[in-house]
Structure formats: structure tokens, C-alpha cells
């Protein structure tokens, strides 16, 4: 049988903000070239869990982790792992588009330059490829030297996705990437996610149930720091196993 490779894995992960137990014994496997959505009410731990995979939580004082977070079978919290190297492999897109105060071109080229790439021809090629992949090339090809702030919110978000992709990561983490966007920009981002899973493993946190249903292969429902249910998205949205999952997705929660 054609078993998909496990790209990301959490093994009995517990995470604490000081004495607050934010994630409780999470176990999860995420297959390569799949899209996984995390859903759950605010404060349930889904964004905390997402950020573990590129060690964004390292920046917060007073946090600690037990258990293992694996990328391609390797513990990303191992002392020998360099965070910069990890983040080259695991890109992140945030809720609000956050382009740098630079030109459109330089935004996408940024990751390559800070990683020491000097070959301008190669940089130009990667910028174009990344903007093409982010479905933004046609809209910006004639104004690459303009400031990124001149773009609309939806275009800025796709620029951030292009920026994340320029350094060729294998995983993209997205923390509510479309929550600040209008429906048309949201549809473009969702279509993009659908396209990108051919080359990337994508994990997306969303508060929009229908977005999770539309874009993901698997969905994980978090509640009070626990992973309540993790299954095929079709199963979760047609017949979830747990009553609390059903109550949440049907809007009866609380």
C-alpha cells in the first residue's frame, strides 16, 4: 500500500506558559503534502501548537516543553538543531500581512539574501517563481520596484506567502492567514493552499469552520489544551466521533 511519509509528528507534547498547562499530551502525525487544519475556540492551544513546529514559542519567556516535535523524524528541539536552519525549512504566514518596508521584489528576495545568496540571476529567478506560486506574479510583475505597502491586504498576504516560499521550505505554517481578508482574497488564498500542497506540507489554524472544511485533508479539534479529535476532514464535518467536536462545529458550543 502507498503509505504517505510522515512529515511532522508530535509525541506526547506538553507545553507550559509558566505554570499554565497550555498543551496536554498531544500526539499527532501530519503526512507529507497534505493540508491539516487546526480548529477550536480561542485559547484552546491550536496556535501554540502550530508555533512549536518552527520554535516560535522559544521567543516567549517562561515557557517550557516536554515530549517531542519531529520534522522528518528528527526532533526539532534537539540541541544540535539550529533554529535558523529549521525556519528555512518551516515557513510561517501570520494572521495580519506583515510585509517589510521594502520593495515587492526585495520582500521576496529577503530570505535568500540573509541566507547569503549572492547570485542575482538566481535571486531574480526565485522571486519570480515564488510570486508565480503565490498566484501574485501577474498582478505585480510590472511594479516589482514599488513598495510592498502599495499592495492590497490580500496581495500583501500572498506576498508574505511568496516570501516564505522563496527559501524553499518544505512546510508552511499558517496562523489564520485569511482572517483579515475580504472573501475574494480569501478565496485566492484558499485556492493557493490547494495548489501548494503538491509541493508543501501545510498546517493552518483557522476560526472559519468552512475554510477548514474547504482546504484541509485532515482536521484537528483542540479544546482546553487537548487534541479532542483528529481525523479526515470529511469525517469531522459529517460525523465526528466526539460530542464536543460536534457541538463546536455546529455552533452549539458553550
Amino acid at each position: 500500500m502507498d503509505e504517505k511519509k510522515i512529515k511532522l509528528e508530535a509525541k506526547n507534547v506538553n507545553f507550559y506558559y509558566d505554570d499554565f498547562h497550555a498543551l496536554k499530551g498531544i500526539n499527532m502525525q501530519i503526512e507529507q503534502n497534505s493540508v491539516v487544519a487546526f480548529i477550536g475556540p480561542s485559547g484552546c492551544g491550536k496556535s501554540t501548537f502550530l508555533r512549536l513546529f518552527n520554535r516560535m514559542n522559544d521567543l516567549i519567556d517562561g515557557t517550557h516543553l516536554t515530549g517531542e516535535c519531529l520534522l522528518d523524524g528528527r526532533d526539532i528541539y534537539d540541541k544540535r538543531v539550529h533554529v535558523d536552519e529549521l525556519r528555512k525549512n518551516v515557513g510561517m504566514v501570520f494572521q495580519k500581512p506583515n510585509p517589510f518596508p521594502k520593495t515587492i521584489f526585495e520582500n521576496v528576495a529577503y530570505g535568500l539574501r540573509v541566507n547569503g545568496v549572492k547570485d542575482e540571476k538566481y535571486i531574480k529567478q526565485r522571486v519570480e517563481e515564488s510570486l508565480q506560486s503565490a498566484a501574485l506574479w501577474e498582478e505585480v510583475k510590472d511594479k516589482l520596484k514599488k513598495s510592498a505597502f502599495e499592495l492590497s491586504g490580500g496581495q500583501q498576504q500572498r506576498l508574505c506567502i511568496a516570501r516564505a516560499m522563496a527559501i524553499s521550505p518544505s512546510v508552511l505554517l499558517m496562523d489564520e492567514p485569511a482572517s483579515a481578508l475580504d472573501p475574494i482574497s480569501t478565496a485566492k488564498i484558499e485556492e493557493l493552499i490547494h495548489e501548494l500542497k503538491k509541493d508543501y506540507t501545510i498546517v493552518i489554524v483557522t476560526h472559519n469552520m468552512q475554510q477548514a472544511a474547504r482546504v484541509s485533508d485532515k482536521t484537528g479539534f483542540f479544546l482546553l489544551g487537548e487534541l479532542i479529535e483528529y481525523d479526515q476532514t470529511k469525517k469531522i464535518f459529517l460525523n465526528p466521533e466526539k460530542e464536543s467536536t460536534q457541538n463546536y462545529i455546529t455552533g452549539r458550543f458553550g
Binding site: 469552520m209 468552512q210 472544511a213 464535518f237 459529517l238 460525523n239 465526528p240 467536536t245 460536534q246 455546529t250
Partner: peptide, 9 residues
């Protein structure tokens, strides 16, 4: 209302 799960059924 885009029903799901038991509501959709």
C-alpha cells in the same frame, strides 16, 4: 447556515 455533521445530515 452551511450546516455540518448532524445538522447537515
Amino acid at each position: 447556515y452551511s450546516p455540518v455533521a448532524i445538522d447537515l445530515r
